[in-house]
């Protein structure tokens, strides 16, 4: 784009993407529309676009995550940003440097977009207060994972044509899941009905006050659902403190064909990955016709491109690339 052309429209108002909680339904719709546009681009042979040329995009991952990190990396590269990955291993972080020291150091290098994942809830927020660039929360503790919720929403919207009025069952470790929180918020903002399905030990206290229907019985929880969204259960939760064992979890809360048959006939099966096959989901279901799990990965790149693009538009000099 050159001088004289109109600046691209604003997608979101904020400088950062820290939480779904901060977004309005219109902003979510705009992000999903832009994401949808990038799905098409990603399916072409020539996938590269110059939107972020000259921008520096740093992935700062304090928690290992191959898929989210590579999804952001590909998204940045397709938009021509200079992408740098900083993982904890081998960095000064593992030598005891604090989160804020790292932030200040990185800030001095003038990045434009910082994508951060951290094990502590609120870490992205803290970072955003201390750096001058745009911050994308790629998962903070048990708080939020906004791009996951956006990619899930895009997947659903493309498959079912809408979000409004759908019944979405989110099943599994609600208590520890930032994916569940972000999805709950987004889906409710967009007019979907959310059900939370989990044993009491994996439900947060006062789960029933989040505006969703809470089910301890999975059969009742997924009956008639349009979407069954499974969550990953961390192995360390299955040692008897939260859940007695993986086989007991699978017996009562694992998604198998029998339980899935209670949902709508063409209900979508989703999972943020990586899956524990035979724990929270049966392989036949994970690989079955109703599964959109691989599609979620594809939507992930598109949605992250949309997020990077949207934030870059709000940077000083944004939209004039």
């Amino acid at each position: 784009m050159t001088n004289g052309e109109p600046r691209p429209t604003t997608i979101i108002n904020g400088q950062h993407l820290l939480a779904i909680d901060d977004l309005s339904p219109d902003e979510i719709t705009a992000l999903l529309d832009l994401g949808n546009h990038y799905v098409e681009l990603n399916r072409q042979i020539e996938k590269k676009q110059s939107t972020l040329r000259g921008r520096t995009h740093i992935n700062l991952f304090f928690e290992a995550s191959t898929r989210t990190q590579s999804s952001f990396e590909i998204a940045g590269k397709r938009l021509s940003a200079d992408v740098m990955n900083m993982s904890v291993k081998g960095s000064s972080v593992s030598k005891g440097e604090t989160l804020l020291d790292t932030a200040v150091t990185l800030n001095a290098m003038h990045p434009d977009i910082l994508v951060v994942r951290h094990h502590a809830s609120g870490a992205a927020e803290l970072l955003a207060q201390k750096v001058g660039c745009a911050v994308v929360n790629a998962g903070d503790g048990q708080h939020e994972h906004p791009t996951q919720a956006l990619l899930d929403a895009l997947t659903i919207r493309r498959r079912l044509g809408k979000l409004q009025g759908l019944n979405v069952a989110i099943c599994g470790d609600i208590l520890h899941s930032r994916v569940a929180r972000s999805n709950l918020l987004l889906l409710q903002k967009m007019g979907a009905y959310v059900r939370l399905v989990a044993p009491s030990t994996l439900l947060p206290q006062d789960a029933d006050r989040l505006g969703a229907d809470v089910y301890r019985d999975m059969a009742a929880g997924i009956e008639g659902a349009d979407v069954v969204m499974m969550l990953r259960l961390q192995l360390e939760r299955m040692d008897g403190r939260f859940i007695p064992s993986s086989r007991e979890y699978y017996r009562f809360y694992g998604l198998d064909g029998e339980k899935l048959s209670l949902a709508k006939t063409d209900a979508l099966v989703m999972h943020p990955g990586p899956m524990n096959r035979g724990v929270e989901i049966d392989s036949e279901v994970a690989d079955g016709v109703q599964s959109v799990i691989r599609e979620q990965v594809e939507m992930g790149v598109a949605v992250r491109m949309a997020v990077l693009d949207a934030l870059a538009r709000n940077l000083p000099g944004g939209g004039n690339m």
């Binding site: 040692d239 008897g240 403190r241 859940i243 007695p244 064992s245 086989r247 007991e248 017996r251 009562f252």
Partner: peptide, 15 residues
Amino acid sequence: ITKGLKGEAMTEIGM
């Protein structure tokens, strides 16, 4: 309630 009555980990209560 707990495996081996050790008071450390829940048994497979549902099963």
